[in-house]
Design a protein around this nucleic acid. Structure first.
Length: 486
RNA sequence: GCUCGUAUAGUGUAGUGGCCCAUCAUAAAGGACUCUCAUUCCUUUGACCCGGGUUCAAAUCCCGGUACGAGCACCA
């Protein structure tokens, strides 16, 4: 090396993807549609989607909807999740795969397993198999002839067996040192008469259903997935699936993992728990602003770009982390501030009557850094203005962009238009230019509805606003603002 | 219990044997700008879990410990 090594640049963005060839990368994100997307799901979408984009590859959105009783799918989620994924990424997933539409493929592979002798139908109970697993001993079913296995398989399919009577296992070895890998279950039966699949085209059509490790493994192969990036809780899944791939003589995709994430303000986020809480009436719905769902965040004014930057900044480390929302809010502020019109909202308004000679109109900018966004005009010809109750106790104040006043009860004495001293600057609204409005502020599990008056405006719902001296908010309707963050 | 994984400032993150008395962001504190408690800018505070080893040289490699997390479901 002739050249001196340069000071290394700090790596920004996503880490390198091993063995990635431009145009040939296929990634997937596979949620259970048992609810809409949560904040945590966003990581899977953002990371996998960003790699797909970076390498000119494909992102598959796959619905892992193979459980009808423990985590039953929610019909609306099949519609909502792709929309939310597209909102988050700025592009739609390239392929959508629904596991419950692909049952024939899983059956076919199960039969291959049975006939080639690396899978067997096990009629042991879950409890007795657990003991065998601990003891590293094989169960009697393990050495059945493949013909007999096919017979038993058909009894699963035709309903001779009932749920719990039999499962299909992959032969991996009962002496494996990791107990999690020993002859793991691949398919089981479910009572889809009492718990039909919510998709009506599926309903009670199947009794035998693949479990995640089998379904996911087979489907990843069928779809040509090259890279799997998922939570490290699925590390043993990789090991189980690798053993299956060896049987099928397939190559397992490259894998990367991320650790567990908690948010200081929310703790963990479980879709199942949210679903129970919503059904119990604790929340108004999936987009309740207190909930860590994508829809709630979106409705509260968090941009998809902020979410993307947030997750990319966290990267793909295997550390278990706990992050404050302030980090997300900081990204969001950077996204919205330049475009957010300034607006005045007065909480708990107190009316003041101005005494003394004073201008009849006041103008101020819509955005102090961008004159192009125009001006706001206040009409004070009736001498009445509104200020926050909290500010009304101050003896001397300056009404922002207007003038200095001395306050005394309900009256405000005009002192001077120019600043005369360092008295605090407060925001205000002229009585002629405002209407009653509500600021919705989700905080500490409560939804506070702060009444006040809002400056007249012509913004459309969805506009992000910077509420002077309060924070950022999103306009819900003419006179309702949802507080976003400071 | 068995198995697996992770450990860098308050919180995240960069760093894969010498560029590191360690990067960047965020948070906090102070300041500049500003007629918002906004934005922007500047400054400061602040970290390689512990103990051994390998090496001329370790945040980086090895071993042990500790802590935290995960899997061992006929959930995903």
């Amino acid at each position: 090396m002739l050249e001196e090594r340069q000071k290394k640049e700090r790596r920004v963005g996503l880490p390198e993807l091993p063995n990635a060839e431009k145009g040939k990368v296929v990634l997937r994100f596979a949620p259970n549609p048992n609810g809409p997307l949560s904040f945590g799901h966003a990581r899977g979408i953002v990371i996998n989607g960003s790699y797909a984009e970076k390498f000119d590859g494909e992102l598959i959105l796959r619905f892992d909807d193979t459980d009808t009783s423990v985590k039953p799918p929610l019909l609306e989620a099949y519609q909502q999740i792709p929309e939310e994924a597209e909102w988050l990424l700025g592009f739609a997933p390239h392929r959508i795969v629904i596991a419950s539409d692909r049952m024939e493929h899983y059956y076919e592979h199960a039969e291959m397993m049975l006939s080639r002798g690396f899978g067997y139908v096990c009629t042991c109970s879950a409890e007795s198999f657990r003991e065998l697993r601990v003891a590293k001993s094989e169960c009697p079913c393990r050495n059945q002839e493949s013909g007999f296995n096919m017979e038993l398989w058909n009894k699963m399919l035709d309903g001779t067996f009932k749920p719990g009577d039999a499962v299909v296992r992959v032969k991996t070895g009962m002496d494996l040192k990791n107990p999690a890998l020993r002859d793991w279950p691949a398919l089981r039966m479910q009572d889809t008469e009492t718990n039909p699949h919510p998709r009506k085209e599926i309903g009670s059509k199947y009794r035998v259903w693949p479990l995640l490790d089998f379904q996911s493994a087979v489907e990843d192969h069928l779809q040509g997935v090259t890279h799997i990036i998922r939570g490290k809780d699925l590390m043993d899944s990789t090991r189980k699936q690798t053993l299956l791939y060896q049987h099928f003589e397939w190559d397992y995709p490259e894998t990367m993992y991320w650790g567990r994430v908690k948010v200081h303000e929310w703790g963990g986020f479980s879709t199942s728990q949210m679903r129970r809480d919503i059904e119990a009436g604790l929340f108004e719905g999936w987009d309740d602003p207190r909930l860590p769902t994508i829809s709630a965040l979106k409705n509260r004014g968090i941009t998809s770009e902020a979410l993307r930057q947030f997750w990319i900044e966290l990267g793909v480390t295997q550390k278990d982390i706990s992050v404050p929302l302030a980090t997300l809010y900081s990204h969001n502020t950077k996204q919205i501030d330049d475009d957010a019109p300034r607006i005045s909202f007065v909480r708990n308004p107190v009316k003041l009557q101005i005494t003394g000679e004073h201008p009849m109109t006041v103008t101020t900018s819509v955005h102090p850094n961008h004159d192009s966004m125009g001006i706001r005009t206040f009409d004070i010809s009736n001498h009445n203005v509104l200020i926050e109750k909290e500010d009304s106790v101050k003896p001397q104040v300056r009404l922002k962009e207007f003038a200095d006043f001395d306050l005394s009860g309900q009256s405000a004495k005009f002192i001077s238009q120019a600043r005369s001293d360092k008295r605090p600057i407060i925001h205000w609204i002229s009585e002629n230019d405002c209407k009653k409005a509500t600021l919705i502020h989700p905080s500490d599990g409560e939804i506070l509805e702060i009444e006040g008056v809002l400056e007249n405006h012509e913004y459309t719902p969805g506009t992000m606003l910077q509420i002077e001296r309060i924070g950022y908010g999103i306009l819900l309707d003419d006179c309702t603002i949802m507080f976003t963050h400071d």
